Amino acid sequence: MIHACRTFESCRLSAPAEKVWALIRPMSFSWWKLVDKVESTNGTPDQVGSLHALKYKDGQSISINIRELSDIEHFVTWEVVSSDEALPVSSTIHTIRVRRITASNETFVEWSTDFSSDASAEVIQDSKFKKLEAFKDMEAAMK
């Protein structure tokens, strides 16, 4: 699949990078208010190649495949591989990366998404706003 558009959002969290990474790494999305639960369908959350079903509070369910995970570089990459509802794009690959801000012991979090060429401006804007809301949820989970 050719990815034609990459979106990128970032934030600064008032918590050490290790604490933020410990929240993200399990891939439970427990910090994100949009997600109701995550169930492993093949493998464990810390296993590259594992599959997981994300069930959103609005009832939608998607399957994701963990493509990369690094405890050294503090990032995780996953691909949406299926959905119980028709998706507005044929492919999305997400990466969340956690970086230490050494001057203040805070954390810089990046979330990028690569969309297939059929992504509309509406899909891209929706992704942006969902990421910004997710960052607020991450900050709240740090308290």
Rank of each mutant, 00 (worst) to 15 (best):
R100Q: 03
E79M: 05
F29R: 00
A103E: 08
K57T: 11
V123I: 13
V20I: 10
Q60A: 14
T77G: 03
W31I: 01
I24L: 14
D137T: 01
D58N: 15
V48L: 13
A15T: 07
H3A: 13
N42T: 01
M1I: 06
A121Q: 11
S40N: 14
S104R: 08
P45N: 11
F129Q: 11
S61K: 13
V81F: 02
L23E: 14
T7V: 09
K130R: 03
H52P: 00
K128Y: 09
K143V: 10
E39T: 13
V38K: 06
I72H: 15
I101G: 00
V20K: 11
S82P: 05
D126K: 03
E110W: 14
T113I: 15
I93S: 06
L54F: 15
E73T: 04
W78E: 01
G43Y: 06
R12G: 14
E122Q: 11
P88C: 07
I124Y: 05
G43P: 02
E85S: 13
I93P: 00
V89I: 07
P16I: 12
F29V: 00
I24H: 14
T107Y: 12
A134D: 01
A22K: 05
Q125Y: 09
N105S: 13
L132A: 14
P45Q: 07
Q125P: 00
M27K: 09
N105T: 02
H3F: 09
P26E: 06
V98S: 06
H94Q: 12
L51E: 04
E139P: 02
A17Y: 01
T102D: 04
F8G: 10
M27G: 10
D84E: 08
V20C: 06
S127V: 01
A15F: 12
I124E: 01
S63R: 13
E18G: 14
V123E: 03
Y56Q: 03
K55M: 13
E133R: 08
V98D: 02
H94A: 15
V35N: 13
T44V: 10
S82M: 02
L54A: 13
A121T: 09
D118M: 15
E85A: 13
E18W: 02
E18I: 14
D126G: 08
I62T: 08
K131M: 07
S61E: 08
I124L: 03
T7Y: 07
K131D: 04
T102W: 08
F135R: 00
K37T: 03
V76F: 11
S28T: 04
T77E: 03
N42R: 05
I124W: 02
S83D: 07
K33I: 04
L34D: 10
S50Y: 04
K33R: 13
V38Y: 06
A22G: 02
D36S: 15
T102R: 06
S91L: 08
V76H: 09
E79W: 05
S127W: 02
Q60K: 15
A4L: 08
A119C: 06
I64F: 09
E133P: 00
K143I: 07
S14A: 14
V81S: 05
I93M: 02
W21H: 05
T102F: 09
R25E: 06
E110D: 15
R25N: 02
S28G: 09
